[in-house]
């Protein structure tokens, strides 16, 4: 038998089947939650609870994808990348989650800075001024840095293709861009989680 054409045990899963698995898993989890749990308790009592839940989910997914991207970026930087196609795909997913986290972060920010005494910003300005004046302000700007860095990395990976692997400084550039995007993500994620813990929107 010609081994070159024997692909029976190597066939990749179809995109349709992968999407179906993800949809079924998410639908099962949501159905179970709605049937058994008080959903409003899950979200929390604040007016910005839904925005916070979606923003947090996007940021968490970005953190998850970014962690894998960081590892593959390191493998690229050191010249040992094997899953180059995976890195290309992951870079686009990471950039997309960055954009989504920023968009939903804008929505949540409306609740954060509402001009009422109960809003998180009013609370921090009155009780813990440095939390807003230093940490939140730095978080809201640093988080925006992730998007151009992640997009630049994804663009170079797709535009140059495997030439990235073959050219030393392109490898270094993309690896460091992905590392930097991850750094700003972790800073924003950590500070955001801390702010939410202190005073949910």
């Amino acid at each position: 038998m010609d081994a070159t054409h024997d692909t029976r045990d190597m066939r990749e899963a179809s995109t349709g089947s992968l999407i179906a698995v993800v949809v079924i898993m998410i639908a099962s989890a949501l159905a179970f939650t709605f049937m058994t749990a008080p959903f409003e308790k899950l979200l929390g009592p604040g007016g910005g609870a839904l925005a916070a839940a979606i923003h947090g989910t996007m940021a968490f997914l970005y953190l998850f994808v970014g962690t894998i991207g960081l590892y593959l970026g390191w493998r690229l930087l050191t010249g040992h990348i094997r899953a180059f196609a995976d890195l290309q795909l992951l870079s686009v997913v990471a950039a997309t989650f960055s954009l989504l986290a920023i968009c939903f972060g804008n929505w949540l920010y409306i609740y954060y800075r509402m001009p009422i005494p109960e809003s998180p910003r009013s609370y921090f300005v009155k009780n813990m001024p440095p939390v807003h004046a230093v940490f939140f302000e730095f978080k809201e700007f640093g988080a925006l840095f992730t998007l151009p860095l992640a997009v630049a990395a994804a663009f170079i990976l797709w535009r140059y293709g495997v030439q990235v692997v073959e050219r030393k400084w392109l490898r270094y550039s993309v690896g460091v861009l992905m590392g930097l995007a991850f750094f700003y993500l972790v800073v924003a994620f950590g500070l955001g989680a801390a702010v939410t813990k202190l005073r949910p929107a």
């Binding site: 151009p148 997009v151 495997v162 392109l170």
Partner: peptide, 23 residues
């Protein structure tokens, strides 16, 4: 296990420089 070597012409470095300078 790895990647297919590029068969395309060398892409100028200016395209990558433009991308990260814009960032």
């Amino acid at each position: 296990v790895a990647y297919t070597p590029s068969t395309r012409d060398r892409i100028p470095g200016g395209i990558a420089v433009a991308a990260f300078l814009a960032a």
